[in-house]
Amino acid sequence: MATYLFALFAWTLPLALSPLREEGHGKFVLIIFSITFAMPALAMGIFRSMGTIDSVLMHTRRERIVPFLFTTALYATLTYMFYTRTGVRLDDNLFRFMLIIDALIVVGTLLTLFWKVSMHSLAAWGFTGIMLALNRLTEDGSLFYPLICSLVITGLVMSARLQLQAHSMREVTAGSIAGLLTSFAGMVFLF
């Protein structure tokens, strides 16, 4: 979801990626994809081969703890490295969005320590919560259609998790509420 969010920003709202210059947006999105999707996916294979998890589907809450802690550390490291290595400041939009994404990952990991919530729902509603707040902040309405698309996709994600019986209604709802509240609160607090 982080890749989708930053790709959408690069395409429709380049100001959200300040202080990065527009010619660097493609490279930034590729880095985000590599660190937030490719590396965790590779780690899942490693965790599976080491016996840490039985399946990449991680059917039990207990199986999810180590991979989620790893992913949390990965996201936090990415944010720290961008802050220390690129000149991004605390008041830059890019850093604020990265903090919100980190908060979503931390909340999901903390919830996983006690309960198996749907991280797909948490991430989808996290994306939608950011879009809701940004749509309100932008005056030109450039994010209205992406917001509508995110609402439809979020509904599809939640339905898929239920249809696949990967989660119960309670787990999907808890992930949804956690994602929406975390992202919207982050937007209100940081912007």
Rank of each mutant, 00 (worst) to 15 (best):
T173M: 12
L151Q: 08
C149S: 10
T77E: 06
V88C: 12
L69A: 07
L90S: 13
A123Q: 09
V106M: 06
I105E: 08
S18N: 14
M81K: 10
W11C: 09
L17M: 15
I148L: 15
M98V: 06
M131V: 01
H120E: 03
G175M: 02
L5H: 00
L111D: 09
F184G: 01
I53N: 13
F33D: 03
F33E: 07
H25Y: 07
G179H: 03
H167E: 04
T36R: 02
P67S: 07
L13F: 11
G26F: 12
D91E: 15
F28S: 07
A133C: 03
G179T: 04
V88G: 00
V107L: 08
T109N: 04
K116C: 08
I35P: 04
L5E: 01
L151Y: 00
T128I: 00
R62G: 05
A41S: 15
I105K: 03
T154A: 12
I100S: 05
Y145F: 09
I31G: 03
T72R: 02
R21F: 07
T112L: 10
L30F: 14
F70S: 01
S150A: 15
I105N: 09
E171A: 12
T109L: 12
F70M: 05
E63L: 11
F37K: 03
R64D: 04
L8Y: 06
F28R: 04
L8R: 02
S49D: 09
A2E: 11
R62A: 11
Q165H: 15
V66A: 13
T60P: 03
A123T: 02
S183C: 02
A103K: 05
R89T: 14
A103I: 06
V56A: 10
L20P: 08
C149Q: 05
S34R: 03
M119V: 15
I46F: 15
I46Y: 14
T154K: 00
F47M: 12
K116V: 11
L110H: 10
I32G: 04
I153C: 09
A16E: 13
F70I: 01
S168V: 02
M44P: 02
T72S: 13
V172S: 11
L74C: 13
T86N: 10
A76N: 09
Y4S: 08
M169G: 09
M169R: 12
L78N: 04
L57Y: 14
S49L: 13
M1E: 00
M119I: 14
R170I: 05
L111G: 00
L181I: 14
F37G: 01
N93M: 10
F114L: 13
F47V: 05
F114V: 12
T72M: 15
F189P: 01
L69I: 13
I35N: 08
L110S: 13
F191T: 01
V152K: 01
H120G: 04
I100E: 03
L94Q: 02
L20E: 10
L17Q: 05
D91G: 07
A16S: 11
L69M: 12
L111Q: 06
F144Y: 12
I46G: 10
A103T: 09
T84P: 05
N135I: 00
V29A: 07
A160P: 02
